[in-house]
Nucleic acid binder design. Structure first.
Lengths: 188, 188
DNA sequence: TGATATATTGAATATAAATTCAGTGAATAA
DNA sequence: TTATTCACTGAATTTATATTCAATATATCA
């Protein structure tokens, strides 16, 4: 293995484990030594790759931002179908690519107060609610989404999804709900 | 003011402010000095009333447990109406008695990993999900609640409410969603 | 092969926040 | 009135954890 490969592997390894621990235990509750112990490396090595705990967190948020920039195109006829497919995708990722799931939760958590302002602003630059509100507007015109302020509906929907995903991180053995239970929030 | 009254007033004052800060900023992110500064008292006084930050947290959870023990009786004809009234009550409390709202969020957060085990167990002793699942079963028999595992439905519903409430703590200026949007998760 | 750069360690240090404590003044009890 | 208890303060101490750093091992390069 070349040094470059080794370096990339380590960084990937560290970021994935940090992501997992940050979303399951919380940022403050996760010690640097928790991460290094879980990977069976020294704390020093972690600081060799990342300047600080906060810098590690920031690089995770930047990774999330990247992922948000190139969203997979979702085809839909009815606007409601867009939400159904999105949730199916998110919930489907839970087992095979848990990091997709973790990242979604991380980005939401990074928008909260208490997070260093520069990182928070990064996370806030992904306007999930606003984007979905536009699709909700279409749905209201086409008649498959209920009446009401599109932004408020969008917010209610995504906050619900957030709540459900956070619970699933804690008790992954318990199955995720059916997608149509959640999209019922929007359905006319 | 007698000493007894003074003492009770201080304790109430400290607990309310701690409750507010713990749920809005998070437990670890809230410094003892944040609480004392917000109340304009010394940190020493806080330790005069509470042995430790953790003990303060525990007494809050115990207070939540008390409140959960004597729930207000909710009258309902259709089981779904029980959920509608519960949410109306919770959302209605948001402005006038924010502590009701805060306490609900605190109890949910106290069930998460990372919380000292004894406190976590206390919080887990309130079986919100199980209790609601029974009412959901009734609703399924009477036909006003959708089919599906009652516990899973109950979990999805309360996790959604949790997600919405947590968001509202962060952006209280933004209105809470309509109750029927949320109960749509359960409605047949 | 020798020289240099990089990965890695873990003990030492720095830092931030929790906790203690000795002292002050006001309320209560004798 | 005097003695005792309690509310209260904030500087000093302790503790937990992030961060640094000197040393070692391994890979890369000339």
């Amino acid at each position: 293995m070349t040094r470059k490969e080794q370096k990339e592997m380590r960084q990937k390894q560290i970021m994935l484990k940090a992501l997992e621990l940050f979303v399951t235990k919380g940022f403050s509750e996760t010690k640097i030594s928790d991460i290094s112990a879980a990977l069976d490396i020294s704390v020093g090595l972690l600081f060799h790759y990342y300047e600080s705990k906060e810098a590690l967190y920031k690089s995770l948020v930047e990774m999330g931002l990247e992922a948000a920039k190139r969203p997979e195109k979702i085809e839909y006829n009815e606007p409601l179908e867009y939400f159904t497919k999105t949730i199916d995708g998110l919930f489907g990722a839970a087992k095979e690519q848990p990091w997709v799931f973790w990242m979604f939760v991380l980005m939401s958590q990074a928008r909260r107060p208490g997070i260093p302002e520069d990182i928070r602003q990064l996370a806030l630059s992904v306007d999930q609610i606003g984007f979905s509100a536009d699709i909700i507007k279409q749905g209201q015109e086409q008649g498959d989404i209920r009446d009401g302020d599109p932004k408020a509906l969008s917010s209610a929907f995504w906050c619900s999804v957030q709540g459900i995903m956070e619970q699933h991180l804690i008790t992954p053995e318990y199955p995720l709900p059916e997608t149509e239970w959640i999209t019922a929030i929007l359905k006319k």
